[in-house]
Design a protein around this nucleic acid. Sequence first.
DNA 1: GTGAAAGCGCTAACAC
DNA 2: GTGTTAGCGCTTTCAC
Lengths: 347, 347
Amino acid sequence: MKTVTVYDIAKEANVSVATVSRVLNNTAPVKKETRDRITELINKYQFQPNALARSLSKKETGMIGIILPDITNPFFPEVLSGFDREARDNGYTYFLCDTVSANGDMADQYGRESQYLSALSEKQVDGIVMLGGRVDLAKPREELTSEVLEIGKRVPVLLINGDLPGTSLHRVCIDERLGAELATRHLIELGHRDIAIVGGYPHMRNTIQRTAGAVKTMQQYGLKVRKEWVLGDGFSVESGVGFIRQLLEQRERPTAVFCMNDLVAIGVMKGAYKAGLSVPGDLSIVGYDDIPFASASTPELTTVSLKANELGRTAAQILHQLISKEKVRKTSILQPELVVRETTAPR
Amino acid sequence: MKTVTVYDIAKEANVSVATVSRVLNNTAPVKKETRDRITELINKYQFQPNALARSLSKKETGMIGIILPDITNPFFPEVLSGFDREARDNGYTYFLCDTVSANGDMADQYGRESQYLSALSEKQVDGIVMLGGRVDLAKPREELTSEVLEIGKRVPVLLINGDLPGTSLHRVCIDERLGAELATRHLIELGHRDIAIVGGYPHMRNTIQRTAGAVKTMQQYGLKVRKEWVLGDGFSVESGVGFIRQLLEQRERPTAVFCMNDLVAIGVMKGAYKAGLSVPGDLSIVGYDDIPFASASTPELTTVSLKANELGRTAAQILHQLISKEKVRKTSILQPELVVRETTAPR
DNA sequence: GTGAAAGCGCTAACAC
DNA sequence: GTGTTAGCGCTTTCAC
């Protein structure tokens, strides 16, 4: 079953391939009569132009690459979904490049990012968006940065909620500090003075910023930030369970805990239950991200919405503008929002 | 900044493009000396072969398309993650085609599937996998089927947990009936006799099969299946909340409920709490899918694992074989597994 | 309004 | 071992 090409259509229609191409792309007027003849043949043979050939000559593919760490982390599908919608509407189709997921082997995460980066570049994608992974690092190694910078010269690169110091790549972010402030202030206004801050990784920008926001707010209100109530290393449910256990082992206990993300918050909640505490009766908990589970748990989780969907949507818009060579400002910052639900209560 | 091509490399190395191509693909022996010279230039210019051109001439792209309804539904990232891992290892990169997500506009879901189907085909993907959407329909419209069949003639198509009656497309599935049997039997063995079956959509194959499995099992044990305890139309948390409300309004109440998926189960659990019931004290609940949240909730959800990850992994394997023109059996069936956690207890 | 022909960048016979 | 050259299937000047 030979695949039919513009030549086949052209021949049978007694025109040149140029004309076929013209009706295909509506790129120049064609006499209605010939146009109809061609259209008919196209339908007859179910002709589908080869996108590879087209892209090769047009030097644009309508393909985008999106590199992220783990689609299994519910935060990412949310931004992806916003991104998808917008990108789709603009006629793009995208490669999903997951650098960790499944094998859970973080070890070579950055190596995999590099592989994808060059694979995408070879595939001539029109644009690349990165989130998580190296762009989350507070101090990425030099090569990690320069590599992206190099790619960025050939194709638009957009960072979501990340940065690569010194590159001035385009990025769309959430105001992380503000999010943390919102959460902390909420707790304080409920009368809490003994607040723990748990989760995250000290080498990640988001953790640093969120922690800074929380600490600053507590200090503004004259609250003391206790070292032993600031626990790190983990973004998972399990780590959350561990954090609350550590907290409960101490002589003095906090009455509220601000978690670096919702997964940790869920873990903390689980751990609290197992320890016989009631939430929010004995312990108020606020998360961060507002993943779907946040509203599915019982009690429903009070959290900070990162506007994941909007983040993705905005990213797609900006990337599109970048690809269209429109002027775009380097950094777009979205405002997070506190979502008060059921895990927080007056002290 | 002109992009460098094999010609540039060839010229500077004083060889022909053929030789460059040879070292690029290791497709024929090249004298070490010339090889080194070429390799050096490749590095010097950071030369990256244009995958479009390569694919155009080789007639293979290393690209796969995967069409699914909603990446925001936690079941899908799980299978995607298994798929990703395996596909990546085999050198594929894939387009994620989400047909619902974000806008939540189910209305034109099938239309979007069609669009993606032809977009992928034009992009010359090496294979396509479909899950959810039309392949979940018990009785898909004729065009929905024939369209896929048509595409299937030009490129391998694999269905995950779905089918298109009369097409004999390759597919990898879970034994849905068995899963439902496992769940139901578990409940019965705990002493429950009043079991409700809630969630799903009557026009979907999985719902039909799961319901059939549950009903059959109940009958085997001589239990009565009450019409008013079989509630449909919904796979969401909200629908679950609605189902339990309906159940509790009735004069006689079930002591256990088998849910069509975990989201519904979570909703049922929420609703039960709001109504002042304790789980599993007053009501045992079992879900279906084993999404990550199933083990994160409190109490942790007893559910049937669909082996989502394995489903994805297997799909990638089989698709690879299909692409490599190896012999593969049409249907692969995976066994589900009951995961007993905390939402089920003796009557 | 339409055609001829030169690319786009790579691979793969085939010849030497 | 290496070079020549004809594709792969489409777009796009430039003529007419």
